[in-house]
Structures are given as structure tokens and as C-alpha cells.
Amino acid sequence: MKKLIIASLISLLFYSCTSNENRFRKSPVDQMIIEMSDLNDFTIILEDMDAEEHLFTQNFYRHKYKVITLGADSIPQVKKTDWYDVSQDFFQLHSGDIGMEIASKVDGKLSKQVSPPGYSGYVGNERYGHWQRDNSGQSFWVFYGQYAMMRSIFNMGYYGRVYRSGYYDYTSHYRSGRNYYGGSVGTPKYGTYSSGAQKANPTFSNRMSSSSGFKNTVNRSVSRSPARYSAGSRASSTSSSSRSNSSSSRYGSGSSSRSRSYSRGGK
């Protein structure tokens, strides 16, 4: 019994030291930002995440990313990364952000504001598309033909149309430094708990449904995330009015905001 107690204490001490070390190391996203410092435009999307938590041994947290850069004639180039080890803090920070942009650079301006896929530099940007009205009179975003592949790159088919009113809600959240997940109260359009993300990221969805341990880790991390909503609103994707957020423990507000320097429809 004495040996077991000593072994347990050593394991806890090792975990504490490792955890502190992880807390201060650069995240993979920071490393990618440094490596792409010569680029004027890029988008980093959280593609997948995994975790293993143990009582007496080291915990593991991992991310996969989708990186979009611009090639010739502003045609997007896509790269999906392998698994990266991340710190527990970084895992918790973005535990609610599957399928979301977690870093972007637009016209040379860097942001780590979490945004729905494609929103930071492409949706609303008249270089890539325009607003079109449907039969009910609502305006939704349409990419020009040469950029039609962006719908697939950002998995927009899984999330439904981007309506202008919802996009206005996003810009309002963005400018006030709050993350935007769309949808009505309790039913986000984007992020970890959205049906769109579950369809667009089947490996993550299968992991959530097949492993209660992993699901509990994600749920705990979302509730503890320093980026979660402490107060605020969740806006409808088809209405420009904001609703009071009754699930404030699940979704986060961002820590920074910036204004766009170029013209974007209606902004």
C-alpha cells in the first residue's frame, strides 16, 4: 500500500510538471502562424480533436486542422494536417469550436477571433461573391462561379445558407469580441454541438457517440473554457434580432476583435 501511494504521488507530480510545461509552450496554431508570416491571407479551421484522460498517467489532447491559403488568381489551396499534441488549456479553449475558424489572416491582418467557416475573409467579400434574394425576399450569400469550390472547402452545404441577416449578427458579435455560433437559443448553427459540424466531421461525431469518456471530456472542457459566454446573446441565422442566451455555460465569447479594411457587402 505504501509503495502504491508513493507511486501515485510521483505520477501526480509528473503530470503537474508536464501540465505546467504544456501551458507555456506555443500551440500548433501559433507555430503555423509564424510559418505563414509571409502570407497576406490564410484561414485555420479546427478539423478534429481527440483526448485521453487518465487518473495516474499523463493525459493527451490532440487537434487536426484544415489550412486554407490563396494560390494563383486568389484560388484557395487546402491542406489538412496530421494530429498535433496540444495543451489541456488550448484544448479547453477551443473545445466548442469543431469546424470553426480559430485563426485567420485577411489582407495582412491577423486575428484569433473564432468565426464560422469562411466568414472572416470570404463570405460578404465582394471579390468572391454577392448577396442574392430567395423567393421569400431574404438575401443569402452566393459565390461567383470560379469560387464555387469554397462552399465545399468550408463545408457550407452542411450548415445551410448564409443569410445576410445572420451575417450581420456575426459582424456585430465580432466587433464586440464575442464568438458567433448562430442558430436559435440552445441550437447552434456552428461549432461542436451543431448538426452541421457533426455531418461535416464524421470522425469526430463518431468519437462523441461511441466513447462516453471522450464525450464527457469535451463537455467538461466546453463548460470550463475561458472563452465561453459569461453573458451575451445567440443570434438567429435568419433574423437580425439577438436573443438572450440561456446556455451561457456552453459557448464562448472571443478575446479580441478587429475591423475589416476592405469593402464587404452591407458592412
Rank of each mutant, 00 (worst) to 15 (best):
G96H: 12
M100A: 07
T43V: 12
W131R: 09
Y122S: 08
D41A: 02
D50N: 14
F24S: 11
F14A: 15
H130E: 15
L4N: 07
W141I: 05
Y128G: 08
R25E: 14
G124N: 00
Q113F: 05
A148P: 02
Q88M: 14
P76K: 02
F140W: 10
V29C: 05
F56T: 00
E21N: 13
G99N: 03
W141S: 01
R25S: 12
G129E: 06
P117I: 08
Q31V: 15
S87M: 09
V78L: 05
K2T: 13
Q113M: 14
Y65L: 15
G96C: 10
I44K: 00
A148V: 01
Q138F: 09
K64T: 05
Y128K: 01
S136N: 08
F56C: 05
D73F: 08
W141C: 03
I98S: 07
L9Y: 03
L46M: 07
Q138L: 10
D41F: 04
G71P: 05
S120Q: 12
L70V: 00
F14D: 02
F91P: 01
M36P: 07
L55N: 05
R25G: 08
T18Q: 10
G129P: 04
D50V: 04
L70F: 04
L13Y: 08
I10Y: 01
K80T: 11
F24C: 06
L39I: 09
T18Y: 14
P76N: 06
M1P: 04
P28A: 10
D48C: 03
S37T: 04
G118H: 07
K109T: 14
I68R: 02
V123D: 00
H63K: 06
S120M: 07
A7D: 11
Y144P: 01
V67T: 03
D89P: 07
G129Q: 03
G145C: 08
I45S: 06
Y128A: 07
N20D: 11
I34E: 15
L110Y: 09
V86H: 08
I44M: 03
D30H: 08
V67P: 00
D85A: 13
T57W: 03
L55F: 10
Y84Q: 05
D50L: 09
N40C: 07
K66L: 00
H94G: 01
M1E: 11
R62L: 01
I10T: 03
A148D: 13
G108D: 04
V29Y: 06
G121Q: 06
K64Q: 14
Y84A: 01
M36Q: 15
R127T: 10
K109Q: 14
K26N: 13
S37Q: 13
R127C: 03
K64D: 01
E21D: 12
T57D: 10
V142M: 09
A7N: 13
H130F: 11
G129H: 06
N22Y: 11
D82M: 02
S87K: 09
D89H: 11
Y84L: 02
F60V: 15
I6V: 10
I98P: 02
K105L: 04
P76S: 07
A7S: 15
D50K: 11
F60M: 01
E53M: 05
F140G: 05
